[in-house]
């Protein structure tokens, strides 16, 4: 069966700094894969390469078997319609009301009538546990947790085939983080989407993933089922999941 997302030998560098050094990763249809790794290891860059926001120097990125690295604008638009994305900071448009944020992909991307799009937005807000009245507020009037929910509602509004989650629980308290994790699992199941997430929150990774991959120095050093993460036999993974300061992973500190 053709993987939903397939990365082969993806390289990306910014000047002399190599961020991705040959990434190979395959995500099956309906599967949820979480990429873990410390800050600055290239997780976000990998996601941006898949989304087409950055272009890798070499390597192949396929979605449904179709090569998307270097794809033309028209084909890229078609592929983007398959995607939903939850950004780390929410990335809600602060000049638009909450419902307009959620319905944005429907109105601008699919040219849906505003009234119809509003109904769907209210329905999606309910799906993430927000009242219809929230729709008339502006993002700045919401708490961090509520903004994350709105961002999740926006990510699933167009019923995408693939949803990307960039640090979905960063900046949230543990209870709200767990609520968001539950919502991610529930929403992905309801929409039937394939999910690719990046995080360094292990509780989140364990909860939302079928498989976990660990990124270190631009390479995936371990990929396996989520249930095996505690017995990976990889000292880098062990250090990371237990959050130990001592181990093979050293923080690059400058005096």
């Amino acid at each position: 069966m053709t993987p939903k997302i397939e990365l082969t030998g993806v390289h990306k560098a910014f000047g002399p700094k190599v961020v991705l050094d040959g990434i190979d990763l395959s995500v099956a249809r309906g599967e949820s894969v979480v990429v873990i790794g410390g800050s600055g290891t290239g997780k976000s860059v990998m996601l941006k390469c898949i989304l087409g926001l950055l272009r890798p120097e070499t390597g192949s990125i396929k979605v449904d078997g179709e090569e998307i690295a270097g794809m033309g604008a028209k084909d890229r638009d078609r592929i983007m319609k398959k995607f939903g994305m939850l950004f780390q900071g929410g990335a809600l448009f602060d000049s638009l009301k909450v419902w307009e944020n959620v319905a944005f992909g429907l109105i601008q991307g699919q040219r849906m009538e505003r009234n119809k799009a509003r109904d769907i937005a209210i329905e999606k807000l309910a799906q993430v546990g927000l009242a219809a009245s929230t729709g008339d507020l502006f993002p700045a009037e919401l708490s961090g947790g509520m903004q994350k929910r709105v961002s999740l509602a926006r990510a699933i509004a167009t019923n995408p085939e693939i949803i990307f989650f960039d640090e979905p629980t960063t900046g949230l308290d543990p209870i709200m983080a767990d609520v968001i994790n539950d919502l991610i699992v529930k929403c992905c199941k309801e929409v039937g989407a394939t999910a690719l997430s990046i995080t360094h929150d292990m509780a989140s990774a364990r909860k939302i993933s079928d498989r976990i991959a660990m990124l270190y120095k631009g390479r995936l050093i371990w990929v396996g089922p989520a249930k095996d993460i505690d017995h990976s036999g990889n000292e880098y993974v062990d250090q990371f999941i237990h959050g130990r300061a001592v181990g093979p992973i050293t923080m690059e500190l400058r005096a």
């Binding site: 941006k48 989304l51 087409g52 926001l53 638009d77 983007m80 319609k81 995607f83 939903g84 994305m85 950004f87 780390q88 900071g89 990335a91 809600l92 448009f93 602060d94 000049s95 944005f104 992909g105 601008q108 991307g109 699919q110 926006r154 990307f164």
Partner: peptide, 20 residues
């Protein structure tokens, strides 16, 4: 200032992912 803030808060990236 408005577009710059949208850039640093990833709102411009969000536009792209929303097929805009």
């Amino acid at each position: 200032a408005e577009i710059g803030t949208m850039r640093v808060t990833e709102q411009i990236d969000a536009l792209t992912t929303l097929s805009t």
